[in-house]
Every structure is written in C-alpha cells, then in structure tokens.
Design a protein around this nucleic acid. Sequence first.
DNA 1: ACGATTATTGCGTTCTT
DNA 2: AAGAAAACAATAATCGT
Length: 286
Amino acid sequence: MSTTTAGCPECDGSLKQDGCETVCTHCGLVVGEDSIDRGPEWRSFEDEETDSARTGAPLTRSRHDRGLSTEIGRSTRLKGRKRRQMARLRRQHRRAQVSSKRERNQVYAFTEIRRIVGSLGLSAAIRDRACVLFESAQNEDLLQGRSLEGFAAATVYATCRTEGVARTVEELCRAARADPAELRAAYDALNRDLGLPTGPIDPREYVPRFASALDLPEEIRGRAEQLVAEARERGLVGGRNPAGVAAACLYTAAQERDGELTQAEAAEVADVTPVTLRATYTELQA
DNA sequence: ACGATTATTGCGTTCTT
DNA sequence: AAGAAAACAATAATCGT
C-alpha cells in the first residue's frame, strides 16, 4: 500500500488525510492503511471462539454474567461490628461487580467494534465515534436485555449513517457477530433514547461502492447517480429500500450502455432481490 | 397495530446462443 | 431448440410509522 495520487479506488471520490490513514470523503473507505487492527489496549478474540459455539463465556449475548455472579449472603447470627463489617463487604462487592461488568462489556464491545470497522475498511474516525456512542448507550443503561454484539454492530451502523457513508444492515451483520434482529433492537434503542441525527439514507451513498463491486466503468456510475436524482424528483425514493433504488439505477445505467449487467448481479451487491430492483426499475422506465 | 414494501417461490414468456 | 434472463403473480415476512 503506498501513494495515493489519484482518487479513491472504490468510487473516485476525493481523498482526505485523516491521522495516519487516507480516507475517501465519499464512501468512507480507508485507502492508505492495511485493515489489520493492531491496537495496543485490547486483546484480540480473533483466534479462539470464532463465530458459533461461544461456549458459556461470560461475554456471550445479553446476559453476560448469567449464573456466574456471586453474592455475599446475610446472616442473622452476626451482631454488632461483625454485622456492619459484612454489610460493608457486601456493598463493596456489589460495586466492584457492576463496575467490572461494565468494564468487561466495554472491552468486549470496543474490540468488536474495532474488528468490524477493520473488516469493512472504515476509518478510525468512524471507529472512535462508534466507541463513544457505545459509551453513551452504557450510560443510558441501554444494554439491559440486548446483546452486546448487537450494540457493537449498531453503533458502527449508526455512525456510518450519520457520517454519510452508509452500509447496509446486511453488510454490517456479515462483518459483525450479530444478526439483523439484534442490530435492529440495539439501533432502535439508540435512536429512541439517544436521539441520533439520522435522516433517511440517500441511495446515492451506495452507488459508488456498488458500482466498484460490480466493476462498472466510471461512466455508468455517474449516470446511475444522475438517475438517483431523477428518481427522487419523481418520488420513487420515498419509502423504499435505498439500496434497492441504488441497484435499480445502476442497472438502468448499465442497460443504457451495453446491457452487460444482469438484474440478479446488481441486486446481489445491494443485498436485495431482483424483484425489488425491478420495482423501481420499471417505474423508472415509465 | 397498521398499511406499504420486500422476500420468496413458482411459472409462462422473451431473448440469446 | 435449449438455457438464461426478465416479467408476472400470490403469499409470507418485514418495515416504517
């Protein structure tokens, strides 16, 4: 990896230097740095416990400490000084427990966030903001009953959206150890209790990335973006899956040229079905 | 909880080779 | 003629509000 004189390899957007890395201002892709994350402070979970079979670790899913916490019981036999001493012990034990629980969660979530961000090739700025967001969620007690993995995924997802470099829920879930339901549960909680400044996603945000995933020439990409604008004019964007709209515009643009691109291919990179693509495609034709 | 959008599946049609 | 791609239809699932 070296010099970056031209534009972003993904979308030809302009590049911006951000700390030690080079980031595309358009699609948020990190260009000038390898995606292996070797941050100092957190241990890596890469090797052990890959995906399935997270055997009984305290950090799995929502109930991180199910059955594993200890309590100091009360005894009626104790009197006076001994009794007060036990009460104090109990108090301290509880406090140590919650604070370490919080810490463990944070370590795990941050590690997970870093992993996701690295695997999606996103910037350090995104990563940091996602971490901050997670802390806010912790402060608001949003984690109760929801999965940590979901929050890790959701914070990255939310940050991408607010930064205008949106990824689809499917992309996030593929990179994260969470499914769409978990991500959504967490994301909804963030939105509701933290009031994220997230508007609807502009389909154009997806075009450059999808275009490059499909190896489409610059010309088609530009035309597709034009078509997105046109679709918006005609009210074909509202209420629809923006990724589907982006795929439809890409397909239409390719069709106008050589017709080498199939609906199925375009639909696949957008994580939608051909039927969905067709819905806006036919509208666009009319 | 509701209405609209999307996924899924299956099938007759059109286009390409 | 055969195979792929696009279109259409019906129902189930999911989304946005």
